[in-house]
Amino acid sequence: METLERFIAEHPFFAGLESYYTGLLVGCASNVRFEKGTSIFKEGGDANEFYLIRAGKVALELIEPHRRPIVISTLSEGEILGWSWLLPPYQWKFNAHALEETRAIALDGKCLRTKCEQNHDLGYELLKRVAQIMERRLEATSLQLLDVYAAR
């Protein structure tokens, strides 16, 4: 338990979070490991986890019929994976698979939601952090959409 709590506290996503809250979160946490090439989640599946990546590399992919999967983003150490657990209908929007052996802390989605409902201060801290990452990814996606390197 102590090491899990330390992992959570040390992960950049939770930087600056009071230890009281990390204490609350640890009850939802477990250590996970994905072998290179294994699937972490699939589009449409129940989004029950929130991952804090500790090491490795994960690809977020979109599948289109008759096309090879398109990797839209890769995520590595210090980043988070998945926020579909936060918002209804709690289903994954992408596929994720481990490009390398990946270690992470998995926080149970339902557990997190319950804790956030019970303690809105914790919920606010969590949402603030997720919002920041959403904003960054939105910006990156806009830039990606511009296809700035394309021949015109």
Binding site: A59, V71, I72, S76
Partner: peptide, 9 residues
């Protein structure tokens, strides 16, 4: 990226 690309996307 594609599947054969092992770098960042």
């Amino acid at each position: 990226g594609g599947l054969s690309w092992k770098g960042h996307v």
